[in-house]
């Protein structure tokens, strides 16, 4: 049997989350089949999915599927899973894969776990998957025992690595019904952020301790040096200093970067809910009692207005030295 992986794409190109979903699927111990839908301009990028562990790559390029509609994509993927005899279907828990997965699960009457952030296991022939629950305060383990099972993987859970070679891309002739297009994406409004928060490897966030919107250039400069995305606490967003698209935590975004740097953020439980699963947490705060230090791996106790510029300069020098 095989695992079917849906490859996230947007604006005609595969997304980072597509590679991550393939990398996750290789841990299921079955042949990995990848499926892309819609317009992909760089055909070679599809063939190269083979390098990341897929044995076969299919592309459905039906004209109507150029526009994203989660119901239409779900209908096509469920049909493909049946046709290709794939009993496990893997998605990224992104704004694309994450909204297709549940519909596919209903269509296939499948077991379902969304937003897993741990590698899967098989015990006595059963698929065992885990995720953080209660906003990062606990982990829960589930067994999926449907004839079909659907999993979505939190971005940044698995690092893709090249292990195989390119494969030939095959086309698949499956289409969706008219009624699957009752909700469609009409336009994209881009933020000015250079790197998307949920996909970023490193995030630098600022909170109330930044004292005002005019001081966030310090956060931006530090982020620039690190190639990081800029985030903010709820306090900074509610005060109108930063847009909601940058809010990390409950009622904002859940992120899981390799490194999360919290500047002037006390670490309210609502904030920890959104970044607690970051691999390395760095806190910069003048209050040594701030709750953020309870979850931080590293930190500097000091005034952000002194520490951040010094850190930015020192990192510039460090980056130059190692390059």
């Amino acid at each position: 049997m095989s695992v079917l992986v849906y490859l996230d794409s947007a604006n005609g190109a595969l997304k980072k989350t597509a590679y991550e979903a393939v990398a996750y699927a290789t841990h299921l111990g079955e042949e990995v089949i990848a499926l892309a839908i819609g317009n992909i301009e760089d055909k070679q990028s599809l063939a190269d999915i083979g390098k990341y562990g897929a044995k076969k790559v299919y592309h459905i390029s039906d004209e109507k599927l150029k526009t994203f509609a989660n119901a239409a994509y779900a209908s096509v993927i469920a049909q493909a899973a049946k046709e290709l005899n794939c009993k496990t279907i893997v998605f990224s828990a992104s704004s694309i894969g994450g909204v297709i997965a549940p519909r596919v699960a209903v269509k296939l009457n499948a077991g379902l776990l969304s937003d897993t952030n741990v590698l899967p296991k098989t015990e006595n022939g059963q698929l065992i998957v885990s995720k953080t629950v209660f906003s990062g305060k606990a982990n829960a383990t589930f067994s999926l025992n449907g004839e079909y099972n659907v999993i979505s993987v939190r971005p940044n859970t698995v690092k893709p690595s090249e292990t195989g070679s390119s494969v030939e891309v095959e086309s698949l002739n499956i289409s969706a019904e008219e009624t699957d297009f009752r909700a469609i994406a009409e336009a994209i409004l881009k933020t000015s952020d250079k790197i998307s928060l949920t996909e970023a490897d490193i995030i630098v966030s600022g909170g109330r301790g930044m004292k005002g919107p005019e001081n966030f250039y310090l956060i931006e400069n530090l982020a620039e040096v690190l190639g990081a995305a800029v985030g903010a606490s709820r306090a900074a967003v509610d005060a109108g200093w930063r847009p909601h698209s940058q809010q990390v935590g409950q009622t904002g975004k859940t992120v899981s970067p390799t490194m999360y740097i919290a500047v002037g953020i006390s670490g309210a439980i609502q904030h920890l809910a959104g970044m607690g699963t970051s691999k390395v947490i760095v806190a910069i705060n003048k209050d040594p009692e701030a709750p953020i230090f309870k979850v931080a791996d590293y930190g500097i106790i000091g005034d952000a207005f002194e520490v951040v510029p010094a850190l930015t300069e020192a990192l510039k020098a460090y980056k130059q030295k190692i390059s």
Binding site: A110, L112, K137, T141, L144, G146, P288, Y298, I300, I301
Partner: peptide, 23 residues
Amino acid sequence: TSTQLVTHELPKPKGAGKFFKAE
């Protein structure tokens, strides 16, 4: 449903972090 919750666990407590004083 074909999804069964098996168990919960609390995350392993983190070791104390390394903090440097800027003062």
